[in-house]
């Protein structure tokens, strides 16, 4: 282990990014616990919202006395509620997310960034990891302490021993969809929560299956996809023994310029398809490059797409 690996901390990058960016909490009115964000209903903030007639049970502190003096009718002065939005985080923990150390680091940073943003917004966070069709609940404390991967490995080994007793979803991996996280099946998205998916989206299948629940039940859907530059191309030529990082399956493949060219087109088409599917469902989609700092990486597509917003 080198010095750079020792000194690397996802949380440090996340804090630096969180100082500039945050999740797009400002995009809508939230419901939920009292917090710092304008809620969808009336509350006790300083922001005036409306007047209405008094009904028994209303807080007498909000009776509009000047109006009662003019009209003699008890009128209530309503203010906007200040709430803390709930944040649901789902992070793809499949092997492709750890394909390179840079990608794994960027994934860790994004997860820490999201948790940090939620913490700063006072939003309760619920965190899950997904690998194939298996969902692992994760603790935010582990993320804050940069130990969530250790816990995840323990959970995986326990899962292997107990044959899925600790899994929230007992559906076995499908041979027909060996690479799909199948996040659509049983992700416990909460109503009205900000739903953030961190995944490289490198699996086949229709994006709708994953995006429909992400866009449902109000709330805001955000997809943050760590992207590795070398995944966009086939840099090798000749006879290659390809090994799938997800399943360790191998196949012999001769890679030439023609195949590489078609691969580049297919790669970009794949993400264009995801981007279009997210746009149609109002989900914020951004690919986050693995190169550079997280703060710099979020400044481009993520900020432009509204997946993050600048801290005021």
């Amino acid at each position: 282990m080198n010095a750079a690996a020792v000194s690397f901390s996802p949380r440090r990058g996340a804090l630096a990014a969180a100082a500039r960016w945050r999740l797009p909490f400002s995009r809508q009115a939230w419901r939920g616990l009292a917090g710092n964000w304008i809620g969808a209903g009336a509350g006790s903030s300083l922001d005036f919202q409306d007047h209405r007639s008094y009904v028994p049970g209303d807080d007498p502190r909000h009776i509009h006395w000047q109006a009662f003096a003019r009209t003699g009718a008890l009128t209530m002065k309503l203010y906007r509620a200040e709430v803390a939005p709930a944040v649901d985080l789902l992070v793809d923990v499949s092997a492709s997310m750890s394909f390179t150390p840079e990608k794994q680091a960027r994934t860790d940073e994004l997860l820490a960034f999201c948790v940090e943003c939620a913490d700063r917004a006072g939003a309760p966070v619920r965190l899950h990891g997904a690998e194939g069709r298996t969902i692992y609940p994760l603790a935010t404390e582990e993320v804050r302490a940069d130990r969530w991967r250790d816990r995840l490995r323990r959970s995986e080994s326990e899962s292997e021993r107990e044959k899925g007793r600790t899994r929230t979803n007992a559906v076995p991996p499908s041979p027909s969809l060996p690479h799909s996280p199948s996040l659509s099946l049983s992700i416990p998205w909460r109503m009205g929560a900000m739903k953030v998916l961190i995944s490289d989206l490198l699996f086949p299948g229709d994006p709708s299956a994953l995006l429909v629940p992400l866009a449902a039940a109000s709330g805001v859907g955000v997809v943050l996809a760590p992207s590795l530059a070398e995944e966009a191309d086939l840099p090798w030529r000749g006879n290659i023994q390809l090994a799938d990082c997800e399943t360790n399956a191998t196949r012999r493949q001769r890679v030439d310029d023609s195949l590489a060219s078609r691969y580049r087109v297919a790669y970009h088409r794949h993400f264009a398809l995801w981007r279009e599917a997210c746009r149609r469902r109002g989900i914020l989609f951004a690919r986050v490059p693995c190169a550079g700092t997280l703060a710099a990486a979020l400044a481009h597509e993520a900020f432009g797409a509204g997946a993050v917003e600048a801290v005021a």
């Binding site: 492709s96 490198l202 000749g238 006879n239 997800e246």
Partner: peptide, 29 residues
């Protein structure tokens, strides 16, 4: 075919979709 080099990939499904007829184990191309 040249002696194949073992390469791990995260985009297996894309390559498989592009070259479904690649000879598995064939050495004469």
């Amino acid at each position: 075919q040249q002696r194949s080099r073992l390469v791990r990939t995260s985009t297996w499904f894309l390559i498989e979709r592009l070259a479904p007829d690649s000879a598995r184990g064939r050495t004469w191309e």
